[in-house]
Design a protein around this nucleic acid. Structure first.
Lengths: 234, 234
DNA sequence: ACCTGAACACCGTTCAAGT
DNA sequence: ACCTGAACACCGTTCAAGT
């Protein structure tokens, strides 16, 4: 009776950005993203659609938010993995991390598709990639090769295709992204390290430094060479 | 003056499914899929939105159609490639075909995203995969390994992620798809051959025979092994 | 045969107004 | 501080009606 200001026993917990996003993830899990409308989301929360706008900016903000929630869930899962990753062990460590991410994504099959449409990058996603890059470094890869490796893994790393750092030739976006990463520097030791090294080699470069065609061919040739070896041994 | 029934010089060519789809591709190329609304499409064609429904069933039909138009464009492009593909030459042949497909897709960057959302499979896309499978067969791969190879190429084969033959555990869909493929048998010698062989080994299987987890791990390990070899030689 | 106008059920979103 | 009602500009789509 003395808890907060609820006049009824109907568990009148107030809305919050967090509660909205959690409900949104639930709606998407249940009926797919196409069922995630502001009006439906409000209904699930027992509230009018317009009330949502007090806690989130707009629908895009909701989509950014649910991607972040899922990426956080992945980070929680992979953070519980404790396996050696130094030297030759890098492969098992990367394999386990990626399969663990996939396992989470299977519960949110809509997530990769939504992730592809985001222009704002999720800080949780960036942290995930930083961890992956760290494992590659543990394996002894140079930043340059590790960078190619992330591209080669591509959709397999997080269940989606689009190149994470492909800002569509948008230099303003590049700079904003770079600034954002610099701000998270202590959370992203490897990505920052990679950027610094690239900046050292090519001072004019920003996050948009990579050549999509080159990365595509690198990944393609890696697969074709692997298949060719399979062919030779069969 | 004697051509058809045009009362004016304004090039009053009548609407047709083909013209609608071509215009739709143009709209998407210009402003992205999000700009492709029935009303806007009609405006571009100088017609009322409702007129479109005489030539296409609905918007989904338009999306199916524009995917098919692009896939046809890819098929035209790759059909002009003439390189040997027997034996060890398979790799160069596959490489060239895939890079050629990518080249076309760069002109229609919205296409992979739309392709992912389609539940009806495009016959042009299926024909593309049949050709790719043919090249793998030329290289001496068994149907079984070639099948894994297609999965491993995944998004790189056509610029999109989602497994082509993953009918979401929909058995009815599987059967419909299988029937559709059988009907195109003379156009799809390799896919049909693959299906027949699988049916021989496992009579109960349909197109849904493949285990997503197994295919994912196959492709992942191919990449990780390739990277590990790179690590060893550097 | 081909196209249209009016209408319906849905979107996301704004804004002034309620408590 | 938090929520809402009415309203707006957009969707896809149906259906009866025009030529």
């Amino acid at each position: 009776m003395a808890t907060q200001t609820q006049p009824r026993a109907g568990a009148r917990i107030p809305l919050s950005r967090d509660r909205v996003l959690r409900a949104a993830v639930g709606v998407a899990d249940e009926g797919g993203v196409e069922s995630l409308t502001m009006r439906h989301l409000a209904e699930v929360l027992g509230v009018e659609a317009m009330s949502l706008y007090y806690h989130v900016a707009n629908k895009d903000d909701v989509l950014d938010g649910i991607v972040d929630v899922v990426a956080e869930e992945i980070n929680d899962a992979v953070s519980q993995i404790v396996v050696p990753s130094k030297g030759a062990d890098w492969k098992k460590a990367v394999r386990e991390r990626i399969l663990s991410a996939r396992h989470v994504l299977l519960r949110h099959p809509w997530a990769p598709g939504v992730l592809e449409t985001r222009t704002n990058m999720s800080s949780a996603v960036v942290r995930y990639y930083d961890g992956l890059l760290g494992l590659l470094r543990d394996g002894g890869f140079s930043y340059d090769v590790a960078h190619h490796a992330l591209h080669a893994l591509g959709s397999r790393a997080l269940g989606f295709t689009q190149e994470l750092f492909d800002p569509d030739d948008n230099d303003a976006g590049d700079e904003a992204a770079t600034a954002m990463l610099e701000q998270m520097a202590d959370e992203l030791p490897y990505l920052i390290g990679m950027m610094r090294e690239v900046a050292h080699v090519d001072p004019d470069s920003t996050l948009g430094w990579c050549d999509d065609q080159v990365e595509f061919e690198f990944g393609l040739d890696l697969i074709l060479d692997g298949l060719d070896r399979l062919r030779a041994t069969s």
